[in-house]
Computed example of a mutant assay.
Amino acid sequence: MSTSDRQSYHHGDLRGALLRSALRLLDAGGVDALSLRAVARDAGVSANAPYRHYRDKEALLAALASHGFAELTARLEAASSVGTEGGAAGSSRAASPSAALADAVAPMARATVHYALDHPGLFRLMFGHVCVSLPEVIAASDAAQAVVTTRIAGFAAPRDRETLKIGVWALVHGLTSLLLDGRLGEPTREAADALVDSAVRTMIGADWAPVAAEGGGGA
């Protein structure tokens, strides 16, 4: 181990330091701007230090994507608790089934868009790079999708849950891509939220059955 490597361990978390540097470079310049050498330089360690944790650039990209999905999962979990003090459907019981489900889904949709706008390079990696086919990234992605599935299960009959999840996931990803590409101009965060809410409510107004249609219960 070189002297510079030994000095880099003073913070006790070389892997974390490398990941933070990689995230900065990724959001600043995209995947093309990322290399293990560039990450080492940004982190202030020797060129060989990253190889102690990442065998190559693809391994680093997979770690970044998994990290992104873990953070997105945490945001989705926080958003899914909005308005649920009274249980799965919470205080929305008096509303129509479509309105209740939209109220449940919209905070998660906004959280996803916010995450993408906060981390554009990382979000593009998470949904558009070949590393997403790796087992560890698939598992991290599945965990994020499971939050949406669980939330929908409190409102929709079993036969409709997967379709609704795919529809919500596709809608939010599409809107996010349009926003990141500047196809919708440069709306304020509030305007983007309003657009997401409107799109979610429009989509959820389609034909689907609430849990009550099959005897109730969310499982």
Rank of each mutant, 00 (worst) to 15 (best):
L23S: 09
L23W: 02
A100I: 07
G218W: 14
I152H: 01
Q145I: 05
S8C: 13
V168T: 04
V132G: 01
G174Q: 03
V147T: 10
A143S: 09
A22Y: 07
S21Q: 05
G29N: 05
V45K: 00
N48F: 05
K57F: 05
L117R: 12
H67Y: 07
S91C: 00
L125P: 10
G83P: 09
S46Q: 00
C131H: 00
A28N: 10
T73Y: 11
V200H: 03
G185M: 11
A102I: 02
R183A: 14
A156V: 07
I152T: 03
L23Y: 01
H129K: 01
V45A: 11
A139D: 15
Q145R: 15
A111R: 04
V147L: 07
A170L: 13
L195G: 13
V211F: 02
P135Q: 00
D197H: 00
M1L: 12
L125T: 05
L180C: 08
R124T: 00
A170V: 13
T163A: 14
A192D: 06
I166F: 15
G215M: 04
E190N: 09
M126C: 07
S96N: 03
A70F: 01
A140L: 13
A194S: 12
A79K: 08
S66C: 01
P97C: 03
A144H: 10
A74C: 06
H53K: 08
V45Y: 02
A212L: 10
L164D: 11
Q7Y: 08
A100S: 12
T73G: 08
E190R: 11
A116W: 07
Y9G: 03
S98W: 14
R41F: 10
V147D: 10
T202N: 07
R6P: 09
V200N: 02
L178D: 14
A157S: 13
P120F: 00
G128K: 06
A144W: 10
L195C: 08
G30Q: 06
V132A: 04
N48G: 14
A156S: 04
